[in-house]
Design a binder for these strands. Structure first.
Length: 881
RNA sequence: GGGCGAUUAGCUCAGUUGGUAGAGCACUUGCUCGACAAGCAAGGGGUCACUGGUUCAAGUCCAGUAUCGCCCACCA
């Protein structure tokens, strides 16, 4: 059965029409599902970094998906069995925040709904917006296997997450404890260290006088957060600090609160900073917590979970932390305890999701002991079992791994995997299901989202069950993602992969560019600075979007996105479309796919384009293999546009004419088709829709381009000699065109051309004269073999040959003289440089011989060209204007 | 405080073992010749951030400086 379709390639090219058709065809034909291939090559497996179900996608996703799909389609065409596994992430905090916000607009809260009601609400949201994401991905054309789509809260996946919790707990790698954690008072939950962004902020340093008990003296402490003083339970100085020697062991009286607190000695205090004396607030600062442990100081918590001052804050109870700060500073000042205020720049931690200022907060949380888990993941990177592209990320990865701290995994949310721990009185059980017996109460918290996504490469394949998919498609072949989640996700996947499957989850990690807006800000949903991908695709086409993103992405650098650039892809799609129209209307009736190349008498131009094509295949393939996607796009783009369209098709037109030799016409048809067919194959992974449409409208073997084979660079097609010869002819054509323009000859006026050249060159020109003439509107080409030259002519030197336009009366003599002088000048400069080089004994002695030879050859050519230019100048000098 | 990256044409960027500086867009000029004005043709435009070094030869390798950007970091 033929997939049906294209009768004609209608002009103008309409991406919307074409793109709406093929996706369902591919899907119905099962193109996206992995099928064992006869090639026997190992399967190629890639998974999507599951996008959050919070809403729509950004241009950053478009880049990532374009690259992933590019690789997958290429690998499929290379004959690999491919699995491209799609899915999405429940994204605990982000999704809960978004849904809560939506509820608030309706005047509702999650508390009103209750836990179950709220979770139901979120599922409804997920169904709606998760669907939107899927539509965008399909519209983009990604060849993912939707029958294997996964969501991190799917039943099976969830089971895997809970099992992992249980296993780590049983290994003693998960524990529960009171610790200072990063607390977001707006999201009202604990966070991991990775979810905190440090923002350089201009703040203040407040100097506060703490009276010494039983004396009229003070000890002055400096702090950036005066509101926490209410929770102070000590003051520390450096034991070597002479200034405070006598105060160690004494007692200070906390202003406003009148609590008596000890003055202790601690090495960690920097005598140079502030006053050299530091207040200790163990419940509200990590440092102080650690220090407090050393000195046995109590914890006084002065804020609640929303950062409102609590009952331990006395008069300040009920105030927001920042209001309290002002009031406390005022009170201190009024009571004479405030010595001074200095401006002070420091880094303030902010919530990755909502940007609220993070509060170090003492609370009871669950943690993963990371150090033992991380060791083999470090080893894997060191030994090259997992490689990063660009390679510099390896160092970043290792640095993080080597300085790893325990991971706080409990979140005080409702949307997520509920912690599989049960309590009854003093009893505690870790169990995936309710333990037997009455009265068990499950832990209220859920797990960090990343505690589920770190299992993605194998949990999506059915782990912990020993499924066929898991055996066949794990480890994955490649991970393509953004470097912004190297710690959140990539590093942890490697850890989890090794821990739970004994294997690194993928051998290679490729980091895409981060897409930024014109101001350099990363495109994100929350900033709202990304164009809507669906709108982009409507306006320019999915193919254009895909091609442009890949064409623009720099290797190892961020991508500054500018919508204007989308035209690159759109125009290119149109160019290919039109080239195909031209070829198609000249094809004739014969089934070209049945013709054997060996039966054809190829011309120089044919050998040239086949050679260029072979090079394009080689370069494109190499660039894809080395993850230089922009270079790959560039290669196809230039080959198609500047070599195939601009030169080969133009040269072929005369061969297609009714009057042309039928045998040669057949050759010209076949080569034009053959190379176009190859272009479509090369281009298909970049622009799947338009290429499929065109391919179907041309002679082809096989049913779908999507499952056709990747082109091979035939050894016999490489032809350096043909390339050299055509290069000369191109130079000749350009020279004639240039002479026409410079002399203001009307574009539609055919001109005679006289050429004085070596025999070999003349033979070349004669061979392709009919194809060259239309390219520069040449009327006739004649040769002078006796050394003579037209008296009055515009002229140029090309590869040692002289080209004349003998147009007495039409030539702008003054302009021509000026032009020749300019040319000669330029030549002279090059010539001087070359002579200087060749006079240099060191160069002659030390440079590689072929470099020297090349330079000698070049000098000879320069001299020859200059001499010919001089003669042209000479001959014009005699002529009067 | 540490680490990484960038600096090449007006803009965005290539430049893969050192050997005559490239592309797209923008700009100038001219083109409705049967694929394509979403196009064709011909052009102009760069002391490769700066300073030193290695080398016969440096945009490319090394060192330092400057500016910008990113990441990491418990000096209150």
């Amino acid at each position: 059965m033929r997939p049906g379709r294209p009768e004609a390639l209608e002009q103008p090219y309409d991406p919307t029409r074409v793109e709406s058709h093929w996706y369902s065809v591919w899907e119905e034909q099962g193109v996206f599902q992995p099928r064992p291939e006869p090639s026997g090559k190992p399967p190629f497996v890639i998974t999507i970094p599951p996008p959050n179900v919070t809403g729509s996608l950004t241009m950053g996703h478009m880049l990532g998906e374009s690259i992933r799909d590019l690789i997958v389609r290429w690998q499929r065409m290379e004959g690999r069995e491919t699995l491209w596994l799609p899915g999405s992430d429940h994204a605990g905090i982000a999704t809960q925040n978004v849904v809560e916000k939506a509820l608030r607009k309706q005047g509702r809260t999650r508390q009103e709904l209750g836990r179950d009601g709220f979770v139901r609400e979120v599922w409804a949201w997920k169904d709606e917006y998760g669907g939107l994401i899927l539509r965008q991905l399909r519209r983009l054309g990604i060849s993912a296997d939707w029958t294997r789509e996964r969501f991190t809260l799917d039943e099976g996946y969830s089971r895997a997450v809970l099992l992992v919790f249980q296993r780590l707990f049983e290994k003693g790698l998960i524990y529960r404890g009171h610790r200072i954690v990063n607390w977001c008072p707006r999201c009202v939950t604990a966070l991991s260290d990775e979810e905190v962004n440090h923002v350089e902020t201009q703040g203040h340093l407040w100097f506060i006088k703490y009276p010494i008990k039983g004396s009229d003296k003070f000890i002055v402490v400096a702090t950036t957060r005066p509101e926490t003083m209410l929770g102070d339970t000590g003051v520390a100085v450096n034991p070597k600090d002479r200034r405070y020697e006598k105060l160690i062991g004494k007692t200070a009286v906390l202003p406003l609160v009148r609590r008596e607190i000890p003055i202790v000695a601690d090495d960690s205090v920097d005598p140079q900073f502030g006053t050299g004396a530091v207040k200790i607030t163990p419940a509200h600062d990590l440092n102080d917590f650690v220090m407090g442990e050393r000195h046995g100081l109590p914890h006084v918590i002065v804020m609640d979970e929303r950062a409102v001052m609590n009952e331990n804050a006395g008069d300040f109870r009920g105030l927001d932390r920042f209001v309290a700060r002002e009031r406390i500073v005022e009170a201190l000042r009024d009571a004479g305890y405030l010595e001074k205020i200095e401006p002070h720049a420091h880094a303030v931690g902010r919530c990755d999701r909502c940007e609220a200022v993070i509060e170090p907060y003492l609370s009871l949380q669950w943690f993963v002991k990371m150090a033992p888990l991380v060791a083999p993941a470090i080893e894997a990177a060191r030994k090259g079992r997992v490689k990063f592209y660009p390679a510099r990320w390896r160092k970043v990865y290792l640095h993080w791994m080597e300085n790893i701290r325990d991971w706080c995994i409990s979140r005080q949310l409702w949307w997520g995997h509920r912690i599989p721990v049960w309590y009854r009185g003093d009893e505690m059980r870790v169990s995936l299901d309710v333990p037997g017996g009455e009265g068990w109460r499950q832990d209220e918290d859920v797990l960090d989202t990343w505690f589920s996504s770190w299992l993605w490469p194998f949990a999506t394949l059915g782990w912990p069950e020993d499924t066929d998919d898991l055996r066949r498609y794990y480890p994955n072949s490649l991970m393509v993602t953004g470097s912004d989640i190297i710690f959140f996700w990539v590093a942890r996947m490697i850890v989890a992969g090794i821990e739970f499957t004994g294997q690194t989850p993928f051998p290679h990690v490729f980091f895409t560019s981060i897409v930024r807006d014109a101001k350099g800000r990363k495109m994100s949903k929350s900033l709202g600075n990304s164009p809507d991908p669906l709108a982009m695709m409507e306006q320019y086409g999915a193919d254009a979007l895909r091609f442009t993103m890949v064409y623009l992405t720099p290797t190892g650098q961020d991508l500054m996105f500018d919508e204007k650039r989308m035209e690159t892809g759109r125009f290119f799609a149109n160019k290919v479309w039109n080239a195909a129209r031209l070829v198609r209307m000249r094809l004739g009736d014969e089934d070209l796919a049945k013709i054997k190349e060996s039966s054809l008498r190829l011309t120089l131009a044919d050998r040239w384009i086949l050679s260029r094509f072979a090079n394009a295949v080689k370069d494109t393939t190499r660039n894809l293999k080395t993850y230089r996607f922009n270079e790959a796009a560039n290669t196809v783009y230039h080959f198609t546009w500047n070599e195939y369209c601009d030169w080969y098709l133009e040269m072929s037109k005369s061969r297609w004419a009714e009057t042309a030799d039928p045998e040669d016409r057949r050759v010209a048809r076949w080569v034009a088709w053959k190379v176009l067919d190859g272009i479509l194959r090369l281009l298909h992974p970049f622009m799947p829709f338009v290429t499929e449409e065109i391919w179907q409208a041309l002679p082809h073997d096989g049913e779908l381009l999507a499952t056709a084979s990747w082109p091979r660079a035939k050894r016999g097609w490489f032809d350096a000699e043909a390339e050299r010869q055509i290069r000369f002819l191109q130079d000749l054509v350009v020279a004639v065109r240039n002479l026409r323009v410079e002399n203001h000859l009307p574009p539609n006026r055919p001109v005679p051309v006289v050429i004085r050249a070596a025999d070999e060159q003349i033979a070349l020109i004669e061979q392709l004269a009919d194809q060259i003439r239309p390219l520069a509107r040449i009327e006739t080409i004649s040769f002078t073999r006796d050394g003579s030259r037209p008296l009055v002519a515009a002229s140029a030197v090309v590869g040692g040959a002289e080209v004349f336009l003998p147009l007495e009366g039409l030539i702008d003599l003054d302009g021509e003289r000026a032009r020749l002088a300019r040319e000669a000048d330029k030549l002279l400069t090059d010539l001087e440089g070359s002579r200087k080089k060749l006079r240099n004994q060191d160069f002659l002695r030390k440079a590689k011989p072929d470099v020297v030879d090349k330079e000698r050859l070049r000098l000879g050519q320069l001299e020859e060209t200059l001499e010919k230019l001089r003669r042209a100048q000479e001959s014009l000098r005699a002529v009067s204007s």
